[in-house]
Simulated assay, not measured.
Amino acid sequence: MAHIPSGAQKIEVAGATVDFYKLQKDGVSTYYFDTSKEGPPHPMVNAMSGLKLIEGSSDTLVMINHKTPGGLFGKLADDVKYSVEELDDGLVKVVFSYNANAQGQSDFTQTSCSG
């Protein structure tokens, strides 16, 4: 897993269908998962499971995927911020964080890829 830091520890995440990893530094945790080799609905399912980990915190969630997950972004309210970076190997890295000043709240149970 080239995009998961070597010091990250594998963790169990409820509802996840891929491995998740956690790296803690200075009291802040970053969670990682890679769905770049997975098809629908795995990217959506795992993102929603991972977003529950950072809800209400200063932690971050890093998703490695084969493309920008536009369907996922459409399901998020303004409580979740994200940035997208295209990687040299053609994959996409999405970094999610929690917005404490949000007006809306995402429903992390919405894991279907349609609508």
Rank of each mutant, 00 (worst) to 15 (best):
residue 74 G to I: 06
residue 62 V to E: 01
residue 18 V to A: 11
residue 87 L to M: 10
residue 39 G to T: 10
residue 77 A to S: 14
residue 101 N to R: 10
residue 88 D to V: 10
residue 54 I to V: 07
residue 97 S to C: 08
residue 41 P to A: 11
residue 80 V to H: 00
residue 70 G to V: 12
residue 28 V to M: 12
residue 85 E to W: 08
residue 66 H to R: 13
residue 97 S to G: 11
residue 25 K to H: 07
residue 36 S to R: 11
residue 90 G to S: 09
residue 26 D to Q: 15
residue 29 S to V: 07
residue 58 S to K: 15
residue 31 Y to H: 06
residue 30 T to D: 06
residue 21 Y to R: 12
residue 38 E to I: 06
residue 54 I to P: 02
residue 98 Y to E: 13
residue 41 P to D: 01
residue 34 D to V: 10
residue 76 L to Q: 05
residue 76 L to A: 08
residue 46 N to M: 14
residue 82 Y to G: 00
residue 45 V to F: 06
residue 98 Y to R: 10
residue 114 S to L: 06
residue 72 L to E: 01
residue 26 D to P: 03
residue 110 Q to T: 07
residue 14 A to Q: 11
residue 30 T to S: 12
residue 49 S to Y: 03
residue 113 C to D: 15
residue 97 S to F: 02
residue 48 M to F: 08
residue 57 S to K: 13
residue 3 H to W: 13
residue 65 N to Q: 06
residue 87 L to G: 02
residue 4 I to T: 15
residue 72 L to N: 01
residue 52 K to P: 04
residue 57 S to Y: 05
residue 50 G to L: 04
residue 55 E to D: 15
residue 55 E to M: 06
residue 8 A to M: 10
residue 113 C to R: 06
residue 87 L to A: 04
residue 80 V to T: 04
residue 55 E to A: 15
residue 82 Y to W: 15
residue 98 Y to V: 11
residue 2 A to H: 02
residue 28 V to S: 09
residue 102 A to G: 03
residue 17 T to Q: 14
residue 3 H to Q: 13
residue 114 S to H: 14
residue 61 L to P: 00
residue 88 D to M: 02
residue 4 I to E: 03
residue 98 Y to I: 14
residue 2 A to C: 00
residue 101 N to Q: 15
residue 83 S to W: 00
residue 84 V to K: 10
residue 76 L to K: 08
residue 35 T to S: 09
residue 29 S to C: 14
residue 102 A to Q: 03
residue 22 K to M: 11
residue 53 L to H: 02
residue 66 H to A: 13
residue 95 V to L: 08
residue 114 S to E: 11
residue 53 L to K: 03
residue 52 K to T: 09
residue 13 V to C: 05
residue 13 V to P: 03
residue 88 D to I: 05
residue 20 F to H: 10
residue 61 L to Q: 00
residue 79 D to G: 04
residue 60 T to S: 12
residue 20 F to E: 07
residue 25 K to S: 15
residue 65 N to M: 05
residue 39 G to C: 04
residue 89 D to T: 08
residue 85 E to M: 12
residue 32 Y to T: 06
residue 7 G to L: 15
residue 65 N to D: 13
residue 19 D to I: 13
residue 83 S to V: 08
residue 41 P to G: 03
residue 17 T to L: 11
residue 69 P to T: 01
residue 73 F to L: 10
residue 42 H to C: 05
residue 60 T to V: 09
residue 100 A to C: 01
residue 33 F to Q: 01
residue 100 A to Y: 04
residue 103 Q to E: 07
residue 2 A to W: 08
residue 44 M to N: 07
residue 90 G to M: 12
residue 3 H to P: 05
residue 6 S to W: 11
residue 57 S to A: 04
residue 44 M to E: 10
residue 7 G to N: 15
residue 23 L to H: 08
residue 20 F to T: 06
residue 5 P to L: 09
residue 27 G to N: 02
residue 19 D to T: 13
residue 115 G to R: 09
residue 82 Y to R: 00
residue 58 S to A: 12
residue 48 M to R: 07
residue 79 D to K: 00
